[in-house]
Design a protein around this nucleic acid. Structure first.
Length: 364
DNA sequence: AACGACGCCAACCGCTACTTT
DNA sequence: CAAAGTAGCGGTTGGCGTCGT
């Protein structure tokens, strides 16, 4: 397992790129594609190592890169995803179209970390430094984070495999998969598959055929005793949606927490992202396709593995995937039988997040 | 005006995971 | 199956610009 020696070679230029070098790299890639990065510098007439060329391209020269100030929405997304995924910048970047992992990482380190710290929030754990703030049950949800991260990590590995598997499939496969969905959800998908706008399938649990992703099944199975909806990871003993976590509050836009020093707003945002396992985000992504204005979205439904997941994910649960139903799940009834009002907020948040994300992400 | 401190960010470094031989 | 090669990721650094004294 050797490390690439290219950067150790003497005589290769380092440091900032000149406009001439940029031009050479850009021209070469536009004409030939990057192909092998290792071989690219000599072919393009650059005295750089391939690694340096790749970095320059992916972080700066790529045409689909947006530069400049991060919007509040982007900040929110970064914080939420960071709470969930930790320092997985590339994964986070897949949900921020046109932003690079490097840029997000820099922005986190130079801006967001400080803002959270200012608010008394540990940017690593996303917990309030003053534990008492969360002592009304919120600490539990915060404590779930590290556990969720572990679970997420395992899940990401599984998804990576699925993505790989799916890439083998051809366009024919895509049509085949869409055909399956059309046959399974004729009314829901008839327009979606051909629509150019983002669409969300409203899947009724009783229409979903069975299938398998072992870990997912195991997880779902482990929850059958709880009406199949108590969304825990296989190793967790904690409930993700409990009375203490979800607050009874009206629908709320994410506010510019950096301006308000309003810890509650930050907490609300985090709670909405923490109260459910990310697998549910995944389910949503899988049933969302189309293209946004500036993104040529390819449906994740064309990914065979994802499709299988889609077809299986809700197999054992009574959960409706319809956001219009408020995303109701049995979990969200407290011990007294009261309904968790915040479900709607949760679904809206996640839908917003997911709908604005590139659908080929391997994260959700 | 000069200097130091600080912030930002592009680029590098080293590691890991994946692929190829 | 092991070794070598390669790409990608995340942490870190260094240079430049800005601000304060």
């Amino acid at each position: 397992m050797g490390r690439s020696p290219c950067c150790d070679k003497v005589g290769l230029k380092k440091g900032p790129w000149t406009p001439e070098e940029d031009q050479k790299l850009l021209a070469y890639i536009e004409e030939n594609g990057h192909g092998s990065w290792r071989a690219l510098p000599s072919k393009a007439g650059l005295e750089r190592c391939g690694k340096s060329c790749r970095l320059r391209w992916t972080n700066y020269l790529r045409p689909d890169i947006k530069r400049g100030k991060f919007s509040l929405q982007e900040e929110q997304t970064i914080i939420q995803l960071h709470a969930l995924l930790g320092n997985r910048w590339s994964s986070i970047a897949t949900h921020l179209p046109k932003r690079t992992d490097n840029e997000i990482k820099n922005y986190w380190n130079t801006h967001l970390k400080k803002k959270l710290t200012k608010l008394g929030i540990d940017p690593v754990t996303h917990k309030s430094k003053n534990e008492s703030i969360f002592s009304d049950g919120h600490s539990k949800s915060a404590a779930n984070l590290s556990h969720m991260a572990q679970w997420e990590s395992a899940r990401l590995e599984a998804e990576a495999r699925l993505v790989k598997e799916s890439k083998i499939h051809t366009k024919h496969s895509l049509q085949h998969q869409l055909g399956i969905i059309n046959s399974v959800f004729p009314s829901q998908s008839s327009s979606s598959a051909s629509s150019s706008s983002n669409q969300v399938l409203h899947i009724k649990p009783d229409t979903i055929p069975s299938g398998s992703l072992d870990a997912m099944k195991a997880w779902l199975k482990s929850n059958e005793g709880n009406n199949g909806s108590d969304l825990e990871s296989p190793t967790s003993s904690l409930s993700f949606c409990e009375k203490g976590i979800v607050k009874d509050e009206g629908e709320k836009e994410w506010k510019g927490y950096e301006n308000s020093t309003n810890l509650e707003e930050y907490k609300d945002g985090m709670e909405n992202s923490m109260a459910f396992p990310s697998t549910m985000h995944h389910e949503l992504t899988m049933i969302t396709w189309g293209s946004s204005d500036d993104n040529a979205h390819v449906s994740v439904a064309d990914e065979a593995g994802f499709t299988n997941l889609l077809l299986n994910s809700s197999n054992s649960g009574d959960r409706s995937l319809s956001p219009e139903s408020g995303g109701e799940c049995n979990t969200c009834y407290g011990s007294g039988g009261e309904f968790c009002e915040d479900n709607k907020n949760y679904w809206n948040d996640i839908l917003n997040l997911v709908n604005s994300s590139p659908s080929d992400s391997s994260v959700f």
